[in-house]
Every structure is written in structure tokens, then in C-alpha cells.
Measured scan of single mutants.
Amino acid sequence: ATNIVSKVKWYNSTKNFGFIEQDNGGKDVFVHKSAVDAAGLHSLEEGQDVIFDLEEKQGKAYAVNLRIK
């Protein structure tokens, strides 16, 4: 899926990962520091509106092509 609009559930800049809620009630989506860095960001804030693409690797959903709404 591409261009999903949602909100950051939480992000831990010390552990370099977090999760984004899915508005459709699906499972929370993992977001890694590499996606945050690629977006030119230093961190994410809880409740922040984001747009991302969903990529599945080894049966897990990852946020990629992250951008701020």
C-alpha cells in the first residue's frame, strides 16, 4: 500500500524505532530510524501526522518512504 496517512503512536529515538497507528484499525506499523533518516528527520513525535508506504518483509509490516503530512 502507498501514501497511507496516519499518526505516530510512539517513537523512541534512543532505541531507534517506533510504531505508527493504522487508521483502518489494522496492526501498528513498525518504523525504523533508517526510514526517519531517509525522510531527513531527526525523530518523530507522538501524534505526528505522517504519510508512508507499507512494505512487508518476512511477514512484518514496515513503514518506508516516510514523510510529514
Rank of each mutant, 00 (worst) to 15 (best):
A1G: 12
T2D: 07
K69D: 10
W10C: 08
N12F: 07
V8E: 00
L44G: 01
E45Q: 13
G26C: 10
V36T: 02
K60Q: 09
W10M: 04
V36F: 05
V64Y: 05
H42C: 14
D49I: 15
N24W: 11
V5W: 11
K60T: 07
L44E: 01
D28E: 07
K9I: 06
S34T: 12
N3F: 07
Q22M: 15
I51L: 09
S6M: 06
G47L: 04
N16K: 14
A1S: 12
Q48F: 06
N3W: 06
T14L: 13
G47Y: 05
G40T: 04
N65A: 04
E45Y: 15
I51K: 05
E45G: 09
Q22I: 12
D23C: 15
A39E: 01
V8T: 03
V36Y: 03
F17H: 05
S13K: 14
K9G: 02
T14C: 14
R67A: 05
T14N: 12
A39D: 01
N3E: 07
V64D: 03
V50G: 01
A39Y: 03
K69W: 13
L41I: 10
Q22R: 14
D53K: 03
A61F: 15
G25M: 09
A63C: 05
K9T: 03
V8L: 04
D28N: 08
A38P: 03
V36G: 01
N16S: 10
Y62Q: 11
S13A: 13
R67F: 05
F17L: 02
Y62P: 03
A1D: 09
V29S: 02
N3S: 09
V8K: 01
K69M: 14
N16W: 08
V5A: 12
K9C: 05
S13C: 14
Q58A: 13
G25C: 10
Q22H: 14
N3T: 08
E21R: 15
H42N: 12
T2K: 14
F17K: 01
V64W: 08
F17G: 02
A63N: 02
S34N: 11
L44T: 01
E21Y: 15
G59P: 01
Q48K: 05
H32Q: 04
D53Y: 04
H32Y: 05
D49W: 15
F52I: 06
S34W: 11
N16V: 03
L41N: 03
F52P: 00
S6E: 02
F19H: 02
F17N: 02
T2C: 13
T2P: 07
L41P: 02
L44K: 01
I20S: 01
E56K: 12
S6D: 02
K57A: 11
Q22K: 12
E56C: 14
E55R: 11
K60L: 10
G40P: 01
I4G: 06
L44M: 05
A63R: 01
L41F: 10
Q48W: 13
V36L: 15
Q58P: 06
T2Y: 13
I51E: 09
Q22S: 15
V36S: 01
A39V: 06
D23I: 15
G25D: 09
S34H: 09
D37A: 14
K57G: 08
N65Y: 04
L54D: 00
G18R: 01
K33L: 05
K57Q: 10
G26Y: 10
K7F: 07
F17C: 04
F30Q: 01
I68K: 06
D49Q: 14
V36M: 08
N65V: 03
Q22D: 12
N16I: 03
A61D: 07
N65I: 03
T14P: 06
S43F: 12
A38E: 09
N12V: 06
I4Y: 07
E55T: 09
G59N: 08
S43C: 14
D37Y: 15
G26D: 10
A61R: 15
E46Y: 11
I20N: 01
V5F: 11
K69E: 10
T14H: 13
V64Q: 05
L44V: 04
K57V: 11
Q22W: 15
F52C: 02
A38D: 08
L66K: 00
F30D: 00
F30L: 04
G47S: 05
V64I: 12
I51S: 06
W10K: 03
K33P: 02
K57H: 12
R67S: 05
E21P: 04
N24V: 10
E56A: 09
G26P: 08
F17S: 01
V36I: 11
D23H: 14
T2N: 10
I20W: 00
R67Q: 08
F19M: 05
G59S: 06
K33S: 08
F30C: 04
A38L: 10
R67D: 03
F52S: 02
K15P: 00
E55M: 14
N16H: 14
K27P: 14
F30S: 00
N16C: 13
A38R: 11
W10P: 00
T14Y: 13
E55V: 14
V29Q: 01
G40Q: 07
D49P: 13
F17Q: 02
Y11G: 00
K60A: 08
G25E: 08
Q58E: 13
K57W: 12
A63L: 04
N12K: 09
E21G: 13
E21A: 14
G25S: 09
A35W: 05
K15W: 12
V8F: 02
L66N: 00
A1R: 14
N24Q: 11
A1W: 11
K60V: 08
V5H: 14
F52W: 09
G47C: 08
F52T: 01
A63F: 02
N65T: 03
S6I: 04
L54W: 05
S43Y: 13
E45R: 14
V5R: 13
G26R: 12
K33Q: 11
E46W: 12
K9V: 05
K57N: 11
G40K: 08
F17T: 00
S13Y: 11
E21T: 14
H32A: 05
R67Y: 05
D28S: 06
A35D: 05
A35Q: 10
K27V: 10
T2M: 12
K15N: 06
K60F: 11
H42T: 13
Q48M: 13
L66D: 00
V31A: 01
G40A: 06
R67K: 09
F52M: 04
G47D: 05
K7M: 05
A1C: 13
S13W: 10
I4W: 07
L66M: 03
F17D: 00
K15E: 04
N65W: 02
N16L: 07
T2S: 11
I68D: 06
L66V: 08
V5D: 06
K7Q: 06
N65R: 09
I20E: 02
K69S: 12
G25T: 08
N3Y: 08
I68V: 13
F30H: 02
G18C: 03
D49M: 15
I20A: 02
A39C: 05
E46D: 10
V5E: 11
G47V: 02
I68R: 07
G47R: 06
F19P: 01
V36H: 01
V64C: 07
W10R: 03
L66G: 00
L54T: 05
G26W: 09
N24P: 10
Y62H: 09
Y62E: 06
N3G: 11
G18A: 02
A63V: 06
I20V: 06
V29C: 04
W10D: 00
A35T: 09
L41D: 02
E46R: 15
Y11S: 00
E45H: 15
R67T: 05
H32S: 07
